[in-house]
Amino acid sequence: MSRPATFVPPPGARAYSLRTARGEFAVVDAPAADGVEPRGVALLVPGFTGSKEDFNPLHVPLAERGYRTVAVDGRGQFESDGPKQDESAYAQEELARDLLAQTEALGEPVHLLGHSLGGQISRAATLIDHTSFRSLTLMASGPAQISPSQQQRVKLLQDALAVMSMAEVWEAIRAMEAPEETATARLDGGLDNREDLRRRWLHTKPAQLVATGRQLCSEPDRVAELAAVPLPFHVLSGALDDTWPLALLDEMAVRLKARRTVVEGAEHSPNTDRPLATARALADFWDRAAEGR
């Protein structure tokens, strides 16, 4: 589970519902910084159990490089509505077409970034229609299914959701966490944000978790298909990742002829572990993509 240090949008950002042809989606939208030449728009797609707030630490440093960033809650995630029980609504193609609708609503092609599960949904959207995108960054998102140890964790969650409420599952998760994982410091130095994390969990639709968890455990390798798409690619990860081994991410980058970034000191969520280094790597890639390099 990604643990944003704060659920409060950064200065200058605006939280609202983005209206699209496929419904409304909750976003945090941060414009390019004043006095900086606009360089483009990026759509940021969160991972499994995550939300748009996972990208809060990236908005300001990317704004300072001239990028408007729009982080989105996918269908059934946190503040974006979706069916509570209908798993078919969360089929990968449905979620991918949501991304295409979001991009259309933003009014111009975007640099697409997907974290973990969000990367695989972003890949699916790119394979449907790449003309909506200027580039694709796969952040801590691998070529196929997640590692066996992570598959076991997803299976435990699915089993729990079959017999327990979201509130009961939350309490069970908290009881199993190590002490150092039970609190997350806020950027303002205040108390931890565990209530925000709980609120996010309770607002996420269980059918979304079950359906997307199944996708993570069964996703086929579609790298060859993606490599045929004429877009610049970027594979970014932390230096440690138990969801997809780094060797798999390295190999995927070679197969895609992609730019490869490893963020030292980060694990599965470089966006929250090392946001400044991550933002710098993203902006460098987007700058070069715009220049055709």
Rank of each mutant, 00 (worst) to 15 (best):
T272W: 01
E219Q: 14
G47A: 10
Q150E: 10
N193F: 01
G142T: 05
T6A: 10
S80K: 03
S17E: 14
A33D: 14
P206Y: 04
V72M: 03
R14V: 13
H130M: 04
V28E: 09
L127K: 08
A71L: 01
L256T: 02
L231W: 09
D98W: 01
S88E: 13
A124V: 04
A96T: 10
L231N: 05
E171V: 07
G23T: 05
S116E: 02
D86K: 04
L136W: 03
P11L: 03
P11C: 02
V262E: 11
K205Q: 15
E267T: 14
I128G: 02
M176D: 15
L99E: 09
D284G: 12
L18V: 04
A33C: 13
A89L: 13
D159A: 13
F285I: 07
V210E: 05
R194D: 11
V110N: 10
G76E: 03
P4C: 00
V36G: 09
L138W: 01
R280I: 00
S135K: 08
D242M: 11
G74W: 03
R198M: 06
A266W: 05
R19W: 09
F233Q: 08
S116V: 04
M176A: 15
P179E: 10
Q151S: 06
E24V: 07
Q150V: 10
W201I: 00
P57N: 12
A91M: 06
V28D: 07
A96V: 07
D196M: 00
R280S: 08
V27R: 00
P57S: 10
E87P: 01
A185W: 06
E177H: 03
A33V: 12
F285G: 02
L100A: 06
D250A: 13
T131W: 00
T182N: 14
G190D: 11
C217T: 12
E225I: 07
R68A: 02
D250C: 06
K257N: 14
T212P: 08
T261E: 12
G292Y: 06
L246R: 09
R214Q: 15
F48D: 04
D159W: 06
T184Y: 03
G190V: 11
S80F: 01
G238L: 03
R134P: 01
D188R: 11
P232I: 01
A15G: 07
G82F: 02
R200C: 12
A247V: 11
S132H: 15
F7G: 00
